[in-house]
């Protein structure tokens, strides 16, 4: 399996080309281009094509494919306040995805505050079907796919992490199958490590990988202590990485081992960011080596 990482912090610190240069130099084989910052796609359609095609050219010269992106995400109140504007931003992010040569765009589902535990399932699904459906024409036009990611919320009463929209693989399957062929899954392995409530024992990496099956086309790999979304490199938390790799092998996961650990290098001095990437390159390479065992 190929190994990849996100551009987020390196792009912000050094610009897209140098970010890709560093990622390639460290040894990564593919890229999740981070479009989480709205300003990255806040430009005219003409400029969008020129800007992201230039980045793609640079990636091509490095032989470093950009296989997925992560579009901007917003809290629910912001979504409500700026709904139409955000739909347009997401469409631009999808265009950028295509110009970058990526096939998948990770787009968070809507997470209304009422959608915690089993509450408000049907209404939230309706909201998400409308939201995602608005993006389908862009997906078809640019021949790309949206990957729905598993999420978590915080219970406002006890201030603890709790299930929400698409926390479970079952709900992800419901969404993906309802939305049709332009939708796949992104399993965030770290998010799955945060849910411990009774009745949610099935929120674990092994079950989710097997349940998602052929729908699973992208990953966000990171570790944590089971209590907070730390986005640490693999092996710095409590996730059983052998089990994750074995499960991915069992479903013949076709995608990339994509790290989402830039929080680590965000805390480093810029001159050390390349070394920081080397640190978690080593961690994800272990995962790739494990996958060869199975």
């Amino acid at each position: 399996m190929k190994i990849g990482t996100q551009t987020a912090i390196l792009d912000k610190a050094f610009g897209p080309n140098k970010a890709l240069d560093i990622i390639k130099k460290v040894g990564f084989e593919s890229v999740d281009y981070s479009l989480m910052r709205e300003e990255l796609v806040d430009m005219s359609y003409g400029d969008l094509k020129k800007h992201f095609s230039t980045i793609k050219n640079h990636a091509d010269q490095l032989d470093l494919p950009i296989v997925q992106t992560h579009t901007p995400f917003y809290n629910y109140n912001t979504m409500l306040a700026r709904y139409d504007e955000i739909i347009e931003i997401q469409k631009k992010a999808l265009m950028a995805t295509a110009y970058l040569g990526a096939k998948y765009a990770i787009v968070h589902p809507l997470m209304p505050p009422e959608r915690i535990y089993d509450q408000d399932y049907d209404r939230t699904k309706e909201l998400n079907m409308k939201y995602y459906s608005a993006l389908i024409p862009s997906l078809k036009e640019h021949d790309i796919f949206i990957a729905v990611e598993n999420m978590f919320a915080v219970d406002p009463y006890i201030r603890e992490i709790c299930p929400t929209t698409c926390t479970t693989a079952e709900e992800m399957v419901d969404y993906i199958d309802s939305l049709g062929e332009r939708f796949v899954a992104c399993l965030d392995v770290g998010h799955a490590n945060l849910i411990h409530q009774e009745g949610y024992e099935h929120v674990n990496q092994e079950h989710m990988i097997k349940t998602l099956g052929h729908r699973l086309q992208t990953l966000h790999l990171h570790d944590n202590d089971g209590k907070s979304d730390q986005h640490f490199p693999p092996y710095m938390g409590t996730i059983d990485w052998d089990l994750v790799m074995r499960s991915l092998k069992e479903i013949n996961y076709p995608g990339v081992l994509m790290l989402e650990c830039d929080i680590l290098i965000k805390q480093m001095y810029p001159e050390f960011m390349e070394m920081g990437k080397e640190v978690y390159y080593a961690a994800v390479k272990r995962l790739a080596d494990i996958s060869k065992k199975y």
């Binding site: 570790d223 640490f232 092996y235 710095m236 938390g237 680590l264 805390q267 001095y269 050390f272 070394m275």
Partner: peptide, 17 residues
Amino acid sequence: MFKDDKKQEAYDMLYLS
């Protein structure tokens, strides 16, 4: 490698390892 105001995070990571 960590910024001065982020050292605690570095130690937290070391501890988890």
